[in-house]
């Protein structure tokens, strides 16, 4: 609940920063909207329509009002509405993230559990070495290596762009390499966090009781240890979503994946301020929403949180 209350001023702050961003950049939105061949009268008319002659706080209110109606301005570069571009890129970004998480989280949890159970054994050392390598490898390195071998040398899978919806054969093939890249850097942190959480739980009294009752080791681990370790794991995975977002921006760039991250980078590099502003607002809002969802999930997994 506290987090929910905090999210409101944070979202407001994001919008305010986004608004101020447009105040410091050297472009006049009226001239941009009017297009290159507009007359002075048309520009003046647009200035009045957009409220650009009003004081800043009025402009901010107008800006929020336009935002509510889905108007995020138009691109300086190609005059297309920012909202439209965002709408067509959010899908691929979510697709990429889901395709990465769907295999990396279960694998990470499995690796972390195995490492914790056989603590100190060879398998544990392998898990730990793999996860520290995983948190140290640059995302683009993984992507470039996959492109070089799987895509270029062996010609097994495509490596540039999205080739259709996921339920088609072409679309599915195209997302494999980006999803391995982005998920690949996520396995390490998940394994590490799971290992710590399971180690904590394995030493707890209720696990000893479960063993004393004569439950099989498998039941002890899956029912008693892992289930109780899930609460910290989910929280920590939630905290890593920012890390995932950073990885997604790089992965999209490496594989020319048509997502929000690539759109954002392209907009910044070409000084397309309205587009940059729109992408940053959407990415921030998305991130805040994910954090809130994780908090709520925390309550579902641990009834004690709900009570307090």
């Amino acid at each position: 609940m506290q987090r929910l209350l905090l999210a409101v001023p944070v979202m407001f702050g994001v919008l305010l920063v986004g608004f101020l961003l447009m105040q410091v950049v050297p472009t006049d939105p009226a001239i941009v909207r009017a297009g290159p061949n507009a007359s002075a009268e048309v520009i003046a008319q647009i200035r009045t329509d957009l409220g650009l002659d009003e004081p800043l706080y009025v402009q901010f209110a107008l800006y929020l009002w336009r935002l509510l109606q889905g108007d995020l301005g138009v691109s300086i570069i190609n005059n297309v509405p920012v909202a439209g571009e965002l709408a067509s890129t959010i899908g691929p970004t979510l697709e990429l993230m889901l395709a990465s998480l769907i295999w990396s989280i279960p694998l990470g949890i499995a690796m972390g559990t195995v490492g914790a159970y056989w603590r100190g054994a060879l398998i544990d050392r392998v898990v730990m070495a793999f996860s520290v390598a995983g948190v140290s490898v640059p995302v683009f390195f993984l992507g470039l290596v996959l492109i070089w071998f799987v895509g270029f040398q062996w010609q097994w899978l495509p490596f540039t762009g999205r080739e259709g919806p996921l339920w088609t054969w072409q679309g599915l093939r195209a997302i494999i390499l980006p999803a391995i890249t982005l998920g690949g850097v996520f396995v390490g942190p998940v394994a590490r966090m799971t290992r710590t959480a399971v180690l904590d739980v394995l030493g707890a009294d209720h696990v000893r009781t479960a063993r004393a009752k004569g439950l099989t080791e498998r039941l002890v681990v899956t029912r008693h240890a892992l289930r109780n370790a899930m609460v910290p794991v989910v929280t920590l995975i939630g905290l890593q979503i920012g890390f995932l977002l950073g990885g997604a921006v790089v992965t999209e760039t490496v594989f020319s994946w048509p997502g929000v991250g690539r759109l954002a980078v392209g907009a910044i590099l070409s000084s397309d301020f309205p587009m940059a502003q729109g992408t940053i607002i959407v990415l921030s809002m998305g991130f805040i929403l994910v954090n809130l969802t994780v908090d709520l999930l925390y309550g579902v997994l641990d009834p004690r949180v709900r009570a307090s």
Binding site: L21, V25, G242, F243, A264, S271, I280, N291
Partner: peptide, 25 residues
């Protein structure tokens, strides 16, 4: 600490994008 919480609400990559957008890469 509330200030720290708010700053933690954003991943580093977003600061990177926003600051590069304002000051230029």
């Amino acid at each position: 600490m509330r200030l720290a919480d708010i700053m933690l609400s954003f991943p580093a990559i977003l600061f990177g994008l926003a600051i590069a957008a304002i000051f230029g890469p």
